[in-house]
Structures are given as C-alpha cells and as structure tokens.
Write a protein that binds this DNA or RNA. Sequence first.
DNA 1: ATGACTAATAGCATTAGA
Length: 258
Amino acid sequence: MKIATYNVNGIKARLPRLIEWLDETKPDIVCLQELKSSDDTIPVADVGAAGYGAVWHGQKGFNGVAILARGAEPVLVRKGLGGEPEDEMSRYIEADIFGVRIASIYLPNGNPQPGPKFDYKLRWMNRLNARAAALLALEIPVVLAGDYNVIPTDADIANPKAMADDALVQPESRAAFRRLAAQGWTDALNARFPNAPLWTYWDYQAGALQRDAGFRIDHLMLSPEAADRLAGAGVDKDHRMREKASDHAATWIILADS
DNA sequence: ATGACTAATAGCATTAGA
C-alpha cells in the first residue's frame, strides 16, 4: 500500500498536474494540503473521475486539506484539532481507510518570527502533539502525513545559513517536532534515508530547483504499528520539475500488507 | 537589506506562502 502526502499549492490551479500524478503513480492514500479552495469549489468530481474517493476540509483562499483513497471512500474521523475552539483555519483532517488511521496536516508556517504567527505555530504544534498522543494510545497503524513546515535538522536543508532566521528552523519549532517523535513516532523518510540529503520543497524563486537548493518539510510520521510495516519511501521530484508544478514534491511510503 | 515566484482575491495591488 502506497501512502503519499502532497502540498499542491492550490488544487484548482494544480488540477491537471494532480490528476496526471494520480494516474502515473497510483497512490492508495493521498493527503493533500494547501487546497486554497472552499468546500464548494474543490474539484471533487474530477478527483472522483480519476478513481479516488475523498474527504476534505476546505477554506477560501488559504489552507485546506483532504484525504483521497483509490477506489474507496475514506471514513471521516474529524476535521480540525481540538484545544483552540476559535481557530477556524482548515489545517487538519483525519480519516480511517484500508485499516489505517490517517491524518492530513498543514502545519502553520509561522513567519515572520518572532510574532503572533510564530506563537500560533507553536500552540498548533502542542495541540497536534496532544492529538498524536491520543492516537498512539489506540495501538493501531496511524500515519500523520503532511506539510509540517519544520526542517528537522540542518542536514535537511541545502543551505542552512540562508534560512537561519526562518520559523521553519527555529529551536522551538524543532523541539516541538522532536517531542512528537519522542512520543514514539517514526519519521519514515528519515528512517529509510538516514544519511542522504533529501528535499521535498524547492522555492519557485532564484532558481532553487535548478540549484537543488531545497529542504525537507513534508513528513510521514508512523505509529509503531505502521512503522513495523514500512517497506519503501521516496519523493516524486520528476513531477516537481514539470511545468506549472507545485513548489512541493509528493512524498510517499510503502506499507507492507498486514 | 531587498527581491526573486506563484496563487488567490469580487482582484488590476495586496496578502500569504516558506
């Protein structure tokens, strides 16, 4: 079973590329982020015609997450994280499908830092960690997949100095991500490629893709019951290099049958 | 210190992204 996470940077602008990627790579479960679309304008019918059922949590203009399943309908568990009722940003959706609990995560960017956006990011990470702890207690295969907007270490970025003041690398951001891992979650791409530079995002600007000046922020975190089945992983960089691509690349894992 | 790119907005300049 192939599970992918893909920040599409606008599902309406990206639709031909998204359908093409689904057809070519045939993931079984897909977590999408940055739909930038309200519920009533998400192209659900086009995704259905491509063979995927979906649950989604949209928002006009910004944010927005979804979970797709190949030839099946994901069963919605929840939209949004608990812990901050006034938070109306669409950044979290959770579902059951193919025997796996799956969450699509769009963690706040947090720039500029310091400031209220960075404070929100750190609060959101604490709320995510609380939800993650509850999911771990279920002792089932769980995959928390998405754009974490955290570069875990300096080994996960081509040019650490260029991003030193960015919210994605701040000690507080990294510490919150480490606290998540320390609960018992496996960073799948890191586990499969512990020493290889591996990027999932390349800025549109300044020829970052051509210079391979990227970093790793799209992560699939596995509960022990999922990690035991981890059989492969990768990043679809070739699709990132096509015309009208998202600035993120799809990032995926293979889980062996249970 | 700035800007480079891209997507979306009842838009033609601004915000947000990372």
